[in-house]
Amino acid sequence: MRAAVILFPGSNREGDVARALHQASGVRPPILRHDEVDLPARTDLVVLPGGFAYGDYLRCGAIAARAPIMDAVRAHARRGGLVLGVCNGFQVLCEAGLLPGILMRNADLRFICRMQHLRVENNRTRYSNAYALGQVVKVAIAHGEGNYVADSATIERLEDAGRVAFRYCDAAGKVGGLANPNGSTHDIAGIYSEGFNVLGLMPHPENLIDPLIGGVDGRGLFASLMAA
């Protein structure tokens, strides 16, 4: 598994996700600048990290989606290559047309950072097969615009095709109510592309890879990828 992490100006969790990839694979992934036009040869996985690309000015992810490197990322995705967008990366993927829908301001209009439980909704993908179906995992969230919204036909399509990757839930796996931190439609925390090669999610599995820091529930995603 050859991974590469994209660094937009204003990205700030590139080091966190690189650390998680390094822990899972023993290899430090290269960090590519936004103004490059090619991915390294034989790249399997492209990661768009969290942060505030281009300051999140205009709209989260809108400018980053048009950065030079994104043509190469889109081509990679079209070929079936793996593309993971975390938090701001998820927003970029939506703006880039690689995933449907959009991330709106959190329902209470405040940034929120806390530990959050997720339910694994599909464990038959290259991102999730190290988890059990329905497994409840604890990860971190840290976002102001994580409220996933799409038209009802799109939501229905995502649900029917098993493209909802993770849902916000409480420690017991129950969804809804206060377990939904941002008002996301159907408690959606992450979704797959039609070909299940692109995953966007708001939470930060890369911040839950250390028993001293909240736990290791995030490792499953990286372990799945390394086995893919």
């Binding site: 966190d16 405040r110 950072c113 840290a142």
Partner: peptide, 13 residues
């Protein structure tokens, strides 16, 4: 404090 990102950089013990 939940409006502050306290976890970024992955070293917040």
């Amino acid at each position: 404090y939940e409006q502050y990102d306290s976890l970024i950089l992955g070293n917040t013990i």
